[in-house]
């Protein structure tokens, strides 16, 4: 199974968090790398989307769309930096 890049989550981030992912920078909690989230490795599955660090492959975040709500877990990121547009 191959991955796509973080741009695949642009719609999900915009809808659930109001964030433009293509200009958002995050730091991986596992290896400390900072990068534009558009460069993350994303595995799209029917259960949810899994975002991984492109440097160390650690899980940065998971987005699951359930019946009544969407769960966004970004616990693999120390922080995200969202520029004012």
């Amino acid at each position: 199974m191959t991955h796509v890049d973080g741009n695949a989550l642009a719609g999900a981030f915009a809808t659930t968090l109001g964030i433009e992912i293509t200009v958002t920078v995050g730091r991986c909690r596992s290896c400390g790398s900072s990068f534009n989230l558009a460069c993350a490795h994303v595995f799209i599955t029917a259960m949810g989307a899994v975002m991984r660090c492109g440097h160390c492959q650690a899980v940065l975040g998971v987005i699951v769309r359930g019946f009544r709500e969407t769960l966004v877990n970004l616990s693999g990121l120390d922080y995200i930096r969202v520029p004012h547009l």
Binding site: A8, A12, I63, V64, R65
Partner: peptide
């Protein structure tokens, strides 16, 4: 939001 779905119905 289209890439994240709850599977086919």
């Amino acid at each position: 939001m289209g890439v994240i779905n709850g599977g086919f119905g």
